[in-house]
Simulated scan of single mutants.
Amino acid sequence: MDALPYLRQISFRREDVSNPALYPFSLPAIAGLTSLTFHPAVTFFVGENGSGKSTLLEALAVVLGINPEGGNRNTRFNTEATHSDLWRHLKPVKSFKRPREWYFLRAESFYNVASYMDGLMPPEVQGYGGVSLHRQSHGESFMAVLANKLHGQGLYILDEPEAALSPTRQMSALVEIHRLVQAQSQFIIATHSPILMSYPNAKIMRIDAGGIEEVAYVDTEHYNVTRDFLNRHERMLSELLTD
């Protein structure tokens, strides 16, 4: 039996929810959820703002023992306890083999991770390239995670990693993701980036009002809207900006 994926599946224990009409159980990502099966290499979650991508990834991180604000399993701090209790209702199905590394990169709270690390130890031993994350640009610090902190044989959860990355850096991120996949790693990524979600053979899970379903890359709204805009941007701008 292959060790990958480290996280094979999660199931949602709906019977434990007292009021499914309340947040976060009312979110499109959760409302129709029964179980999810993950790709051995890369699984993407895509969907509109507010669909529940980040809430789902946060719950995955917590149920796996990772800080909800980000970092690895040794990152222990709590800026503000705003994460939902969704994780209490998830049951993970894991591989027989444990990953050597765990990491949750959460764009919205990565500043807190950087502050925690600076308060814990000198930059030279943090593992992010020898420079404080606060001394790097937002994009440089995200790339420092991928290029320096992560070494392979890991389970990595990334929530909107493109938030700080230029298109060129997003392509660099693809290179690092591929390096880590070749080093027996598994990624679960929430993204709006058509560049990142182009990773070959990845599983793309679209979240909308109807729930969660697997789609092909060229069938994602992100791909089609970006393609159409770039191919006829003048006409689209005229339509969008006409009073």
Results as ranks from 00 to 15, higher is better:
residue 146 L to H: 05
residue 150 L to D: 09
residue 130 G to Q: 03
residue 147 A to E: 15
residue 191 T to S: 15
residue 141 S to R: 15
residue 131 V to E: 04
residue 187 F to V: 01
residue 144 A to M: 03
residue 162 E to M: 05
residue 162 E to K: 04
residue 183 A to Q: 14
residue 166 S to F: 03
residue 183 A to F: 02
residue 178 H to K: 14
residue 164 A to T: 08
residue 126 Q to F: 08
residue 161 P to M: 04
residue 193 S to A: 03
residue 158 L to Q: 05
residue 148 N to C: 12
residue 181 V to M: 06
residue 135 R to K: 13
residue 131 V to Y: 04
residue 149 K to Q: 15
residue 173 A to F: 13
residue 154 G to W: 14
residue 161 P to K: 05
residue 170 Q to A: 04
residue 191 T to E: 06
residue 173 A to D: 08
residue 168 T to F: 11
residue 180 L to D: 07
residue 165 L to A: 07
residue 146 L to P: 01
residue 158 L to S: 02
residue 191 T to A: 04
residue 158 L to G: 01
residue 188 I to P: 03
residue 173 A to K: 08
residue 166 S to N: 02
residue 189 I to M: 05
residue 191 T to C: 04
residue 150 L to W: 07
residue 147 A to D: 13
residue 178 H to E: 14
residue 152 G to C: 06
residue 176 E to G: 07
residue 170 Q to T: 02
residue 148 N to Y: 15
residue 193 S to W: 12
residue 191 T to Y: 11
residue 143 M to G: 07
residue 134 H to M: 09
residue 156 Y to P: 00
residue 142 F to L: 13
residue 134 H to T: 06
residue 174 L to G: 04
residue 187 F to H: 06
residue 183 A to W: 04
residue 151 H to Y: 01
residue 138 H to C: 00
residue 137 S to D: 08
residue 192 H to D: 04
residue 134 H to F: 12
residue 159 D to K: 09
residue 132 S to L: 11
residue 155 L to I: 01
residue 139 G to M: 09
residue 176 E to M: 13
residue 185 S to K: 02
residue 132 S to M: 10
residue 192 H to R: 04
residue 126 Q to N: 10
residue 149 K to I: 06
residue 135 R to C: 02
residue 171 M to P: 00
residue 138 H to W: 10
residue 179 R to W: 05
residue 189 I to W: 11
residue 191 T to N: 10
residue 160 E to A: 11
residue 141 S to I: 00
residue 163 A to T: 15
residue 155 L to S: 08
residue 126 Q to T: 01
residue 143 M to F: 15
residue 184 Q to A: 07
residue 162 E to V: 02
residue 186 Q to E: 08
residue 135 R to M: 07
residue 185 S to L: 02
residue 187 F to G: 00
residue 166 S to K: 05
residue 138 H to K: 10
residue 145 V to I: 13
residue 175 V to G: 06
residue 178 H to D: 15
residue 150 L to E: 08
residue 160 E to I: 04
residue 153 Q to R: 14
residue 186 Q to W: 13
residue 154 G to M: 11
residue 126 Q to P: 02
residue 134 H to E: 08
residue 182 Q to R: 15
residue 136 Q to D: 01
residue 152 G to I: 00
residue 150 L to H: 09
residue 135 R to I: 00
residue 177 I to E: 11
residue 184 Q to H: 12
residue 156 Y to N: 01
residue 163 A to L: 08
residue 146 L to E: 02
residue 167 P to E: 12
residue 165 L to N: 11
residue 128 Y to W: 09
residue 176 E to P: 09
residue 154 G to N: 07
residue 159 D to Y: 15
